[in-house]
Design a protein around this nucleic acid. Sequence first.
DNA 1: ACGAAAACCTAGCACGTGCTAGTCTTTAGG
DNA 2: CCTAAAGACTAGCACGTGCTAGGTTTTCGT
Lengths: 340, 340
Amino acid sequence: MISKRPTMMDVATRVGVSRQLVGLAFRNEAGVSSSTRERIFEAASELGYSPDIAARSLRRRSSNYIGVLFNPAHSSADDIVEALYAAAHERGYNLILGALTATRDERDAITELLGFRTESVILISPETPVNELRKLAKRLPVVSIGRPLPQGVCGAVRSDGQRGIAAAVDHLVELGHRDIAYVLTRSLPEFAARHQGYVTAMDRHGLPSRVREIDGDFTEESGASAAESLLAEPVMPTAVVCSNDHAAMGLINRLLRAGLRVPEDVSVTGYDDSRIARLSFVDLTSVRQDPEEMSTAAVEAAVQMMSDEESAPRERMIVPTLVIRGSTGQPRSEAQLHPR
Amino acid sequence: MISKRPTMMDVATRVGVSRQLVGLAFRNEAGVSSSTRERIFEAASELGYSPDIAARSLRRRSSNYIGVLFNPAHSSADDIVEALYAAAHERGYNLILGALTATRDERDAITELLGFRTESVILISPETPVNELRKLAKRLPVVSIGRPLPQGVCGAVRSDGQRGIAAAVDHLVELGHRDIAYVLTRSLPEFAARHQGYVTAMDRHGLPSRVREIDGDFTEESGASAAESLLAEPVMPTAVVCSNDHAAMGLINRLLRAGLRVPEDVSVTGYDDSRIARLSFVDLTSVRQDPEEMSTAAVEAAVQMMSDEESAPRERMIVPTLVIRGSTGQPRSEAQLHPR
DNA sequence: ACGAAAACCTAGCACGTGCTAGTCTTTAGG
DNA sequence: CCTAAAGACTAGCACGTGCTAGGTTTTCGT
């Protein structure tokens, strides 16, 4: 029973027709009488037959599949993957996932996707060197999500980190904050724009002298140690903008332990609007990069590049939005001036 | 360039050998001189060739792939998927993922996996009716992770919910708690064992009269409303055992807002040891179902059923462990008797 | 230098399906 | 009743690879 999965032929002989007719029925093509069609599907279900995708795409010379590289450990990947399925399905494509794990690096995962003869690949926050991406993009349409790349390397969808952070700074300034610190992430290139956004926004508000930058990364620990160095200062800023949600959480936690209240004493913002930020427990004001919009744009770019081989790789910038929650409020001096 | 991906034949003509020799080289078989082998790989890399997995598994009549059904929205799935990759790779198998999304139900996803001719499927917390699972298991080895099923339906790996909750209760009793409430989850069958574990553990400790059960589910809101009903009681229990981490978080959050401290006033435990529980912010004592152990067991079961077609479906129960963190401590009366 | 084995290489069929080009049967129009 | 068209169905090749069964060259022991 295990050794042999049924084929079209098995269904055909059971019904008493030719294999080709079964093929027509499964492809929903004309030329099969409705009674025969019914008998075919019935027999197929009895035998547990389903078409062999490998054989089909081999013969068709097109798989109808888009490969997706994602890292399940990265918190925002799930939302994007989910939205990609919907977006691809709407346009008649299927997805095949390539996961990044401790035992599989990007090269392995991409090679596997190519092995499946996907017609294009969508890479979520890839770290593959640019020249390799360029090489890859010569073979098939490639769309990168989230990573800033030089013009024309491949299709690209990313959100405007500069505007995202600027929105956070604007929000805080509007609340009355002036001493606004920033916890940056050094390790990844996509964070350069966010950093830039902080600096220019502070400038724009006439606060260049209040710029205060602290090193951090993607961990809660880094947020906690950022909190330490702020607490050690003579004057604690009234607000802290973080370049990601995890660092923001670590920071808040340390501040609370030090007896400060959020947002009464210090306002904090995150970035990503990850599931963590949405927890009622955390309730973190955060910059949202809409996963539906990113995914739709990525699939659109891939579809365009697949249908028109000569079209230039499409690049699209998504405008992030600030989701205001409970971790931001009026600064403490203001609160003292206008209590409640 | 896009219309035609290179084949073995292209590589062969470029090197000046037969297609079969290229095949030997890529399968790492003997019979290819090392110099030729080198030239073949060089040409392949220049052309961007990688073997066509579809054609290969078609000819081999075995795909070497295990299908994995998972729900990216479910918090514990990521860890399991990651561990599955490692476990499968160690045993010479690859994984192909089938994601559950809003637009794809289990039937769709499983049908797709079958279309890829995976040699077996591992289903993470499937909700497919038992009779359909039984039918499926007749066609190929099926292993379910997490769901309680009647004996013999298919391979099964799950953790002992009864012992898991019992461990939480034991821990609290050891700390001195006697008034221990339980927030249950009604919606899913795998939670029946946990409920049972609570009742029997309370019994065993001679506390059947202290049993206090509150309805809940997988959401933070349900935890919050559970907190409400506890706060409305004349005597608040000193500890609350929750059947999942999300409910525990909602509960804690509401307690804190009501001015209670955790664990000084109330101890709380969760279940799943999800990433959320590990956040320094939350620091939740929780029952851990080791994903590595579950995954390894699942792959082992699948491999056994694949290699020995007649072997009975394997069923394995994993013993969960309690991870003690900061949300549990001595009960308030005890703490008053022995301060610090 | 000879035979044999080892090393290196190739021909041809098969896997399950899609597609083109048909064949055979039924129906419709005069 | 004849013809043509439409409907229902089928024969056979092709897709890219693996495998069996060979073929040819090189190497080695004596």
